[in-house]
């Protein structure tokens, strides 16, 4: 295995993200997945919009494109059509992809463009000061919802399944090994692959909601996942987190995987199957 640092622009490090922010864990897992698939650094393009998660493209040594807010899937669509030989990956946040750029995301999914979208969901607008996002859970505190969020939140995976994405998965930043595996599957999938990563924002979400810092946030997201809640609760570093205070369970893993014709025939289905 190559050192993941060969995929980093080391001169740009350390990155701008807050202490304990799980976006960095997600980036490392993604680089591990790229390393696993042995993708040429010059043949991989990372496209981002605006937001904390979108800042990640500044630190990776691939072809990178930093576009406008919410329009990363649109940029990526154009890039993929012009340069079908590139592997195109969109890194986006929950506000970027589901609020500002919601339309671009669902139509890229509907067309089954051969790109991979990583949605780093931290349940809040982190970069702009902790405002409530479409993914903020009901009842959660944010700078714009001091008495608790009254709106229901998006389930991004269900939305994308409804829009026709041919690969939909959800992973937790707290499970980096699983994350790498699912990302490798998604990168390898012919057609539109969507991976929602439950990331975190200890600085705003953790602070406002009294969850705690990075370690506690990782635990918190784990106890939201039904499969790992029980075992994790017994671990030392999660002792003080009351289980009943966390939201209901989320389904994780690959939720949908189908092979259907790819937009503009960039990569033929038969090729993949043979």
């Amino acid at each position: 295995m190559t050192d993941v640092k060969t995929y980093l622009r080391e001169w740009a490090m350390p990155h701008v993200l807050c202490p304990g922010c799980a976006h960095g864990i997600v980036l490392r897992s993604f680089l591990n997945a790229v390393d696993q698939l042995q993708i040429d650094q010059d043949k991989l393009a990372m496209v981002a919009g605006i937001g904390c998660s979108s800042r990640l493209v500044g630190y990776v040594d691939f072809c990178t494109l930093h576009g406008t807010h919410g329009r990363a899937p649109a940029f990526a669509t154009g890039l993929k059509l012009a340069r079908p030989d590139l592997k195109v990956v969109v890194v986006t946040g929950d506000g970027d992809a589901l609020a500002i750029g919601g339309n671009h995301l669902i139509h890229a999914a509907r067309r089954n463009i051969d790109i991979t979208v990583l949605l780093l969901n931290n349940s809040i607008y982190g970069m702009t000061g902790g405002q409530a996002a479409p993914t903020t859970p009901e009842g959660a505190l944010a700078s714009t919802t001091p008495a608790g969020n009254t709106e229901p939140n998006f389930d991004a995976c269900k939305l994308l399944m409804g829009a026709g994405a041919s690969f939909v998965a959800r992973v937790l930043a707290a499970n980096p090994m699983d994350m790498t595996k699912v990302m490798a599957d998604g990168l390898d999938h012919p057609g539109f692959s969507f991976i929602e990563v439950i990331s975190d924002c200890p600085e705003y979400f953790g602070r406002y909601n009294k969850v705690g810092g990075g370690a506690e946030m990782l635990t918190w997201m784990s106890v939201r996942d039904e499969g790992v809640a029980g075992p994790l609760a017994e671990k030392r570093f999660v002792n003080h987190i009351p289980i009943e205070s966390v939201p209901s369970g989320m389904e994780t893993g690959v939720l949908q995987r189908e092979i259907r014709p790819v937009y503009a025939g960039v990569r033929k289905v038969e090729d993949h199957e043979s």
Partner: peptide
């Protein structure tokens, strides 16, 4: 190493 957000 896997859970360090800062590659540190």
């Amino acid at each position: 190493e896997a859970l360090c957000p800062d590659f540190a």
